[in-house]
């Protein structure tokens, strides 16, 4: 029995000493926890090596804001023109020449009125605006294409 205990003690001591040799001097004995964690993450993290992670912010810039607002206005007007061109006739007629809306005409803003200059006094005499808008759009597309 004594011999068995002695053998057990030696084996335990030897195994412990052997395990200790796996540690470098001053190495944290709990390094396994961290190693296991990052062994799982390594592939996804190292795949970004040599790349630039874009974490940009939006700066307060007066001119840039102005340019964006202008672009949004242009986009809105473009869509408005397209919508009006799609609903040509019906839209204007309903808007201006029904008895309910006719009296509102003088109070429209200049810009709104300007779009509808082709329509006057309930008489459609001119369809040059859609044509001019189409030409201008084509011109712009051509210009952008060639830029």
């Amino acid at each position: 029995m004594k011999r068995h205990l002695l053998l057990f003690f030696f084996i335990t001591a030897f195994t412990g000493a052997f395990a200790q040799t796996g540690l470098a001097p001053d190495q944290n004995p709990n390094y396994n926890a961290s190693r296991d964690k990052y062994m799982r993450l390594a592939d996804s993290i190292t795949s970004l090596q040599g790349t630039t992670y874009q974490d940009t912010y939006r700066a307060i810039d007066y001119l840039e804001d102005k340019r964006e607002a202008r672009e949004q206005r242009r986009q809105f007007r473009r869509e408005l023109r397209m919508e009006r061109a799609r609903n040509a006739g019906y839209y204007y007629y309903e808007d201006y020449h029904t008895p309910y809306n006719y009296n509102y005409y003088p109070y429209r803003s200049y810009r709104y009125y300007r779009y509808n200059r082709g329509w006057y006094g309930g008489y459609y005499y001119n369809n040059t605006l859609p044509l001019a808008a189409t030409l201008a759009t084509l011109g712009t597309i051509g210009w952008l294409w060639c830029r």
Partner: peptide, 17 residues
């Protein structure tokens, strides 16, 4: 040396490569 990641925290798109 190994090249790691560069983080662009500016207001513009910049590629560090």
């Amino acid at each position: 040396v190994i090249v790691g990641m560069v983080t662009n925290k500016s207001h513009e798109h910049i590629d560090a490569e």
